[in-house]
Design a protein around this nucleic acid. Structure first.
Lengths: 220, 220
DNA sequence: ACCTGAACACCGTTCAAGT
DNA sequence: ACCTGAACACCGTTCAAGT
């Protein structure tokens, strides 16, 4: 069905780095990061575990590869946008890419990536900042502040970071009761708001603060 | 030598949750998170691996326990401080606690902690916000924005998050060359600033933006 | 160039047995 | 109540052998 008339599939089921990474991402999506093993992945691909090593440099490189697949899914911002729109589009694109594979997202958010794939998004953020007149040192400063916020927010959203809350409404009742019974006065008073978390609203709130600050920096 | 005249040490080398957690933290400090195994930890304690299970609920609970040890090290802010000073003291205390055990820090920064130990710092942040007149919903909002930034920044600082830079000055030269050779114009232009990262300055920069925004929220 | 399978040195955890 | 050791079902990776 796919590629029937176009470029011939050659060996659609031949082993390749690409096919390995796609299957690995599917495995993470289905069973979570902890379930990833070279042997299980090989089983899914119908192949000897050691065959994977012909295309991938080991388990760590495999995980880096998955992270790169996620990063590559961030769309380029519209060319005619101004600085604020560009930054906002990139932040939302980053978020969407992570939420599309929440269980794999920690690979991007917590691993040191050295590859070119990680450099492309940096270029996309830096270019509009420089174009807006930011001196390079301030542009990097701004980039890093926004990135830190994005990473922290998305870690929470993807349920890898401490929140004291979630989105499921029935667990919320139980958490509310726990927080009120904590004996801590401020926690009790704010319990209804600690027990739930509107990730979307938190994201927009923090992003607005940072983009406002960037705007002020550009002017000064 | 310790506790010679005070509470008698009973069995100083008896197995206990406390002794297990201390040894586990030492193991992480020395060899990193990936090196932690129940068996190796037991070897260090001179004990059968299965003995650990009498005091700790399995490996995951062990890691949660280490995270709680780190969190417990955050000092309480001075009582006479105003809102901004309190928030700043807590943020710096959090940072210091993580930097004291950089290899263990991801346990706090990336794991969902449900325990009371994690609730105490929340109380310490929420209390001054409420005292300053924040309505509870806004106080929680502010807490979460600051926490997201702290988590993201510290992940980078602790070298678990993407930075495209480090602090070692010799690696910096190599990175600088790579960045300039990337062919990406904005990346090349900002290369000198991308190649190094003054974590302290980044931390203060982002924290100031957020505390300023909090201050503005309090007034309005 | 790519694939295979045996082998090595590990894992976390269950369970039955000891004291 | 706590500790032990054997056992089970796994790991990632090296290496020599195949095609």
């Amino acid at each position: 069905m796919t590629g029937r008339r176009g470029r011939p599939p050659k060996d659609a089921d031949a082993l390749s780095r690409d096919r390995i990474l796609r299957e690995a991402l599917a495995l993470v999506d289905e069973e979570g990061l902890a379930a990833v093993s070279m042997r299980k992945l090989a089983r899914r691909l119908g192949v000897d575990p050691m065959s994977l090593y012909n295309h991938v440099d080991g388990k760590d490189a495999l995980l880096d590869g998955i992270a790169e697949v996620l990063l590559a899914a961030i769309p380029a911002p519209p060319a005619e946008a101004d600085l604020r729109e560009t930054m906002s589009a990139l932040a939302h694109g980053f978020r969407a890419a992570m939420l599309g594979h929440p269980r794999a997202a920690p690979l991007v958010l917590t691993r040191q990536l050295a590859s070119m794939t990680a450099l492309t998004p940096v270029e996309t953020v830096l270019a509009p900042l420089l174009a807006a007149g930011f001196p390079p040192d301030r542009a990097v400063h701004g980039l890093r502040a926004v990135l830190a916020f994005l990473i922290g927010t998305l870690m929470r959203e993807v349920e890898a970071a401490p929140t004291f809350s979630g989105t499921d409404p029935d667990g919320a009742r139980r958490r509310l009761a726990e927080l009120e019974a904590s004996g801590l006065p401020a926690v009790s008073a704010a319990a209804p708001f600690l027990a739930v978390c509107d990730h979307e609203a938190e994201f927009e709130f923090g992003l607005r603060i940072l983009l406002d600050a960037l705007g002020a920096m550009a002017v000064r």
